[in-house]
């Protein structure tokens, strides 16, 4: 493990309801980089994201996920989140009756409390929320709406980006960020990711299509097939894939 490795996955095996899904994943993601995971449906892409985030229905049978050198598989999902692991969900869930500002303030304060800081001042919070929402073009959406309730696919993904920008995580899993989005929305959410990129953080972009990677340009692309990484390469790998399809990798 090199000095600036942020996330390292070692021989990770995971299953759900007895079905083996991940069959020995090895991955090393340094700070300051974007890695992409591509692969056909059912290859285990989203499972990988869920295991990193700590979703309980996936059972890790072998291996480690080291984040800043700590095995996060031993941490509760909320602890991982508070330590800087963020997942942008493929299908963000609705939470009826919980207003966007209330939700955003609650999660910001949970992170501040974890860092031993005072809760955010209301004026500061409003300024910050408005600024980030304006960047994403969703100022109206955050007013008088419940979390993800009645949001379009694009709005839900922008809401994920809003939370990411407010929480400023260090390691971000983008689970099918582009699914269900039109080209303008893809541009917008990609902009959010790109302006977040820094030498201190890293992204793992899980995607089915090459399209997203035109906007979020990865340093490394991994091809995941049947629970294993079968090939890794630079951004040109995505173009090869686009041309030849996943069949070529099997």
């Amino acid at each position: 493990m090199s000095n600036n490795t942020l996330l390292e996955i070692k021989d990770l095996h995971a299953e759900v309801e007895g079905k083996k899904i991940l069959k020995g994943i090895n991955l090393s993601i340094p700070a300051g980089s974007v890695h992409a995971i591509m692969g056909p449906n059912g290859a285990g892409k989203s499972t990988l994201g869920s295991v990193i985030a700590g979703k309980e229905e996936f059972e890790v049978t072998h291996g480690e996920v080291l984040y800043k050198g700590r095995n996060i598989l031993e941490m509760d999902p909320e602890e991982r989140a508070l330590e800087g692991v963020f997942m942008s969900f493929q299908n963000p869930v609705e939470i009826p009756g919980v207003s966007m500002p209330n939700f955003l303030r609650t999660i910001i304060n949970a992170h501040r409390e974890h860092r031993g800081e005072e809760p955010i001042a209301p004026a500061e919070f409003l300024r910050l929320m408005k600024e980030k929402a304006a960047f994403l073009g969703i100022e109206k959406m955050i007013r008088g709406r419940s979390v993800n309730e009645g949001f379009s696919g694009g709005e839900k993904k922008k809401n994920e980006m809003l939370q990411m920008m407010l929480l400023e995580p260090q390691f971000v899993v983008l689970d099918e960020l582009d699914s269900g989005l039109d080209i303008d929305a893809i541009r917008k959410v990609s902009e959010a990711v790109n302006q977040m990129r820094s030498p201190d953080n890293a992204f793992l972009a899980i995607t089915h299509y090459q399209r997203l990677l035109d906007y979020i340009v990865p340093d490394v692309i991994h091809i995941l097939v049947d629970g294993r990484i079968v090939k890794s390469g630079d951004k040109n790998l995505a173009l090869e894939l686009e041309k030849d399809g996943y069949e070529m990798m099997l």
């Binding site: 309980e56 999902p77 909320e78 869930v93 939470i95 609650t106 999660i107 949970a110 992170h111 974890h114």
Partner: peptide, 14 residues
């Protein structure tokens, strides 16, 4: 729903 709880945990809430 478990999904709701997981979503909020992923945002740092116990």
């Amino acid at each position: 729903a478990d999904d709701q709880i997981f979503y909020l945990k992923q945002r740092g809430l116990d």
